[in-house]
């Protein structure tokens, strides 16, 4: 999913010990919608997919924030297409959750009432145009690291949705990199704008991988169920290793004085992450939690009359069709 940074709720306990099911999983088999599956697996998967879907649609807001101000028509078109992709990701994911018996309207209700979360990264503000670059490069980049292993997740519809999503995410990451590259090689003011954005988005991006492994109680079971393939810290390390050379190519610095190459492990070492910030944002105290939720609820409430009208219209047409087929309706 976008991040593993939103669920502090305990995972639903597996009630039954389904040996057949575990055998399929252990053989790395795919579970399909009609297969028997333990209720706990189904419930946890619905929640994971739903929270992933919520992240996609809430994630439209911070970037949608800059579409009308994009500084060139080419950038405007790219950004619009990107935000549109995120809406599409939301659609695929809600559809995947529906194959497990969930209903999109109910899932949205859980989001709107705060009973389900979305990735905390979207609770940070997009203050300058360079944030469009930093989000694409770092946030979509972290999303890719999280999502690529999900292309092999045990639940077929989720895995297949991830394959489509990942293709688009790599385009998102590239356009973010390009924005920053252009800024970094532009005027001094543009370069400063790019550096400022990277300074603000680096640490929150690392937090997208969730709490450290020792305080991530759900990882072990999710791995056994094949809905998670690598631990939070493994994924975080993979992201850091991938990103540091890209920062060098951008000629931008990452705001971590302790960042250093460890020849022995073959990894980039990074400084301590302030997870108290993550927990505050998850609790709802991030800079934009209230704003994002208010926006989402407002869009939903203001659209209610439209959805009701569409339903009423469809009902009328169905009734007509039954009364005197074939009705002449455009």
């Amino acid at each position: 999913m976008y991040g593993n940074d939103f669920t502090q709720q305990p995972i639903v306990e597996i009630a039954e010990d389904d040996a057949d099911f575990q055998a399929i999983l252990d053989a790395d088999g795919r579970i399909e919608p009609r297969d028997a599956m333990p209720e706990a697996y189904r419930k946890n998967l619905i929640r994971q997919i739903a929270q992933h879907a919520h992240s996609e649609i809430i994630g439209m807001q911070p970037e949608g924030n800059w579409i009308t101000r994009a500084p060139s028509l080419k950038r405007k078109a790219i950004l619009m297409a990107k935000v549109q992709d995120e809406a599409g990701h939301g659609l695929y994911l809600y559809a995947a959750a529906e194959t497990l018996g969930a209903d999109r309207a109910d899932l949205l209700d859980l989001l709107h009432t705060g009973r389900q979360k979305y990735s905390s990264i979207f609770n940070y503000p997009t203050l300058t145009w360079a944030d469009m670059g930093a989000i694409g490069w770092l946030v979509d980049g972290a999303g890719i690291v999280n999502q690529v292993p999900l292309c092999r997740c045990s639940y077929g519809p989720y895995a297949r949705a991830m394959v489509r999503v990942c293709k688009e995410e790599s385009f998102h990451q590239r356009q973010g990199f390009e924005i920053l590259h252009t800024l970094s090689h532009g005027t001094p003011a543009q370069k400063a704008m790019a550096q400022d954005a990277v300074d603000r988005w680096w640490w929150p991006s690392l937090m997208m991988f969730g709490p450290p492994d020792e305080s991530s109680p759900n990882t072990e079971r999710s791995m056994r169920w094949g809905i998670k393939r690598f631990s939070n810290d493994e994924l975080r390390q993979r992201f850091v290793d991938m990103t540091v050379p890209q920062a060098q190519a951008l000629d931008l610095t990452l705001p971590d004085p302790q960042l250093s190459w460890d020849a022995a492990t073959g990894h980039w070492e990074y400084g301590a992450i302030d997870f108290t910030e993550l927990f505050e944002v998850i609790k709802g105290n991030g800079p934009c939690n209230a704003q994002r939720m208010a926006h989402r609820r407002r869009a939903h409430e203001e659209g209610a009359w439209v959805r009701e009208a569409a339903l009423a219209y469809a009902t009328k047409r169905d009734a007509e069709r039954e009364a005197e087929p074939p009705a002449a309706v455009a």
Binding site: Q61, G64, A81, A87, E302, A304, R307
Partner: peptide, 27 residues
């Protein structure tokens, strides 16, 4: 573009973005 993330349903966010992109391409 002003509608994106504010449409009555997700399908409409996609549709309005599509239409906006078409118009922007023409422009």
């Amino acid at each position: 573009a002003e509608w994106i993330a504010s449409a009555p349903e997700l399908e409409e966010d996609v549709a309005l973005a599509n239409i906006g992109l078409d118009l922007l391409g023409q422009a």
